[in-house]
Write a protein that binds this DNA or RNA. Sequence first.
DNA 1: TGTTAGCACTCATTCTTTTGGAGTGCTAAC
DNA 2: GTTAGCACTCCAAAAGAATGAGTGCTAACA
Lengths: 342, 342
Amino acid sequence: MEQLDGRKKKILKAIIQTYLETGEPVGSRTISKFTDLNLSSATIRNEMSDLEDMGYIHQPHTSAGRIPSDKGYRLYVDALMAEKDEEIAEIKDLMIEKTDKMEKVLKQVVRTLAQNTNYATLISAPSFSSDRLKFIQLSRLNNLQLVVVVVTEGNRIRNEIIDLEEQMSDDTIFKLNFLLNNSLNGIPAAEINLGMIAQLKEQAGEYGEVVSSVLDAVANVIQVDEDLEIYTSGATNIFKYPELSDSSKASEFISTFEEKQQLVDLVKETMADEESTGIQVYIGDEAPIKTMKDCSVVTATYELGQGIRGTIGIVGPKRMDYENVVDSLKVLRAQLDTMFRK
Amino acid sequence: MEQLDGRKKKILKAIIQTYLETGEPVGSRTISKFTDLNLSSATIRNEMSDLEDMGYIHQPHTSAGRIPSDKGYRLYVDALMAEKDEEIAEIKDLMIEKTDKMEKVLKQVVRTLAQNTNYATLISAPSFSSDRLKFIQLSRLNNLQLVVVVVTEGNRIRNEIIDLEEQMSDDTIFKLNFLLNNSLNGIPAAEINLGMIAQLKEQAGEYGEVVSSVLDAVANVIQVDEDLEIYTSGATNIFKYPELSDSSKASEFISTFEEKQQLVDLVKETMADEESTGIQVYIGDEAPIKTMKDCSVVTATYELGQGIRGTIGIVGPKRMDYENVVDSLKVLRAQLDTMFRK
DNA sequence: TGTTAGCACTCATTCTTTTGGAGTGCTAAC
DNA sequence: GTTAGCACTCCAAAAGAATGAGTGCTAACA
């Protein structure tokens, strides 16, 4: 089996790029004209035949043009695709309005991204569990209800109402606040486990039985967000790509985006995998979601420091515009960084 | 033009019910067998012809069976459809797990409802603006940040972090808390307007300039939720109805559910319209959303007392199973009522 | 030895034609 | 008023025919 020489690479690249644009199988004649190689269609045919043997392209059926295989896309993304200059990237700012509520920002980010790229997008909120607690407060709502407010370094706020069995004195609440803040401040939420809670309960023992149930509730508030929050947008963009808009596939795909549960797996996988660039491309089955086996997924991890991280993802057809997508994600990641850091 | 006699009503009802099941145009022969009227197909044909003249049914093309017109559906919903006994309804409990977080409950409600009915569903969170404030607290996070927590009678919690320009003494915060609680407790959020805030600012004047900006932030927290929160589920169910799964229509439809903005209009319209039963049926263009002109929408308003209300909606094809849907909504409304009241 | 022109062949797509059947409207008889 | 009978309409599915893009292969050429 011969190796990929320069000419073959050029031809493969041309095939893929043409296919990215048109979505139609690419014939030898098209390539013969499209490239500046000045080769006849017959020659191209020979080369194509070789490329097919090597597994980079294939025919949907005899007597059709060629389309890239997953292996072909992989090579394209890894080696053939042009890296754009960072500078050029900076220019087309995505124009995200500044808002202070994290939730709103994230919703707007996915929205803008989906509109700009014409693919389906998702973003996970900065993960709470790797975030440190910085403030806990119990306040009396009325005789039998307290409200717990928990704030983290990442400025995420969670709260819940606790129903008491019996009344609690102001003094007890005050002392409990003191205890909680002293014991838990600066500790990553993920590290708050059962042992720790048992220990706290023991320390709090003197304040009576009620305290125990309060602590359970507090623990609950802290841990509640094990499953990440994910915002999505543009799921219906897949209808723009005929190869994906078959109604049963589309239905599954959109459901995946609607339910969000499966997206969590994707985000987790992304976060686990620490790449140098932080940008990953999953082609076809490479992604951990079955309903996306006909798609490509591009993800980027953004960092807000102190291990607080989130993931942005773009899902589209395999023939997605990888250059642009990777590029947009780079820009966006930088923007999120500066946006949240201050 | 002759009137609708008993026989015509029976025939029309049979036509509609058959069409609800099959989704196919209904022919005279089918009806002749299906009903216990013991009439030949020829007779049915004559009656059908009359019904068509009256506008209750129409033919998609000559030599096809009949399908109900919007007017036909309307009559069916208003007069022909059987009202089920409340008792029967009670039986098939929708089995909603008890959770304390309102958001989770609502998400689960729409989800269950969508799965049970096979239609697209939506629910609006109890409207905050008609809800009374019951607790406001400012707490110091650090030297230059405060966190505001606002709790309403409906036990909805909102909060936000406020950045200060200059430091604020503990005493000021304490006094501010006192002032806010005294002035705002028990007041419907909707009534907190600019005049009121100006007045508060004046009262707070003595505590310095910072206070003003804090109050702005507080006002912002309270008012932020003018646009209702809406949860949706099962948008992809429309693919189960061929007459709606044409890809361009489906795309628009699902987008509407994804964006949610337009659903707000629907909810607002429902809330404005105070019907005796609280259950409304919009057929075709009757609904205020263009993308649903080929659908029917059934909504119910649920009340948690004190003017705190929300809306549940079910969207499906015109040939939806109105009896069941109306029924499910009745049950659900009762459940929500008991669930949140305590 | 690599490149190219030429040609027969394949096969999806598109358009047309055919056929079948469900359903109607009308008429005449009961 | 109801029904049987019949001619007629028209959609939908099946079958057939035409089109054309694209291939693989062979033989000739530089």
